[in-house]
């Protein structure tokens, strides 16, 4: 089985799919270094769009906002999602998994609209706080899922063994469960960070004046034209996401290991 090579047809179909997925991204990256205002033909290599970015205050502010939102909401979602994952694993409440994991399946537009309505009803002013709350709410499910799948693969007698050998419930959580869950928790945190920094739809509904994030800023720039500057900022965003995804895939083998 392991030595069996895929058939030529399957291989070329696979290559086509990946070309379809990655060529547009490659084009964005390439044109971000193109010394021309038009995304039409290759003129020459330049860093100037990146230099322009550094001096574009609104993009810098949006990037800063995105980073702050992603860090805070990932941190909050990680704590809450881990607790939710533990609670789901205990299985005392049958409805809990559906409740926590529901937002994963829910359309973003629905979450966005309903959160907007809630914030208006509760008189929460739209801004960083409302965006963070929104991001936490849809990230919890992903963290819970990562933690819970890790828990499901864990030998339950490890916790019993810890208690048996003299550890209090808190000690057995801190010394045994937590270290063993850590790969799942880190994977969940990275997922939450990526989802937060990339989110457009939900952020679009919950952002206010002055709290624009990078995806929102890119969108507003694109409304006029896809400038090389947009290409440059998209390339940077892609770089951040790819770095995290690569790190995540480095961690997930250890998530799957035990």
């Amino acid at each position: 089985m392991a030595n069996k090579r895929p058939s030529k047809a399957l291989l070329s179909a696979g290559i086509l799919v990946y070309l379809f997925l990655y060529i547009p991204l490659a084009v964005v990256v390439i044109f971000s270094f193109n010394d021309s205002k038009l995304n039409a033909e290759w003129v020459g290599f330049t860093w100037k769009w990146y230099e322009k970015l550094i001096h574009n205050d609104s993009i810098l502010r949006a990037a800063g906002n995105s980073l702050i939102i992603a860090i805070i909401s990932a941190a909050m979602a990680t704590v809450l999602g881990t607790l939710a994952g533990l609670a789901i694993h205990r299985g005392r409440q049958k409805w809990l998994p559906a409740l926590v994991l529901g937002p994963i399946a829910m359309p973003d537009i629905l979450i966005g609209v309903s959160l907007l309505l809630m914030f208006i009803l509760l008189n929460v002013s739209l801004g960083m706080v409302s965006i963070i709350l929104a991001h936490v709410s849809f990230c919890i499910g992903f963290v819970a899922l990562a933690v819970q799948s890790r828990l499901a693969g864990m030998d339950q007698s490890l916790i019993e063994a810890a208690r048996d050998l003299g550890a209090s419930p808190w000690q057995s959580f801190r010394l045994i469960s937590l270290p063993l869950l850590m790969p799942g928790i880190i994977a969940g945190a990275m997922m939450a960070f990526t989802l937060s920094i990339d989110d457009f739809v939900i952020t679009f509904f919950t952002a206010g004046v002055g709290s624009s994030t990078l995806p929102l800023e890119i969108y507003s720039m694109v409304k006029i034209a896809v400038t090389p500057e947009v290409n440059a900022v998209s390339t940077l965003l892609m770089l951040v996401t790819l770095t995290l995804i690569t790190a995540l895939s480095k961690i997930s083998p250890t998530v799957l290991r035990q």
């Binding site: 030998d155 490890l158 019993e160 063994a161 003299g166 270290p179």
Partner: peptide, 20 residues
Amino acid sequence: LPPEKRPVHTVFQSYALFPH
């Protein structure tokens, strides 16, 4: 008494050695 307060220790079928 909770398990940690009992002078009783268990050898588990799966050994339950802490992998980390």
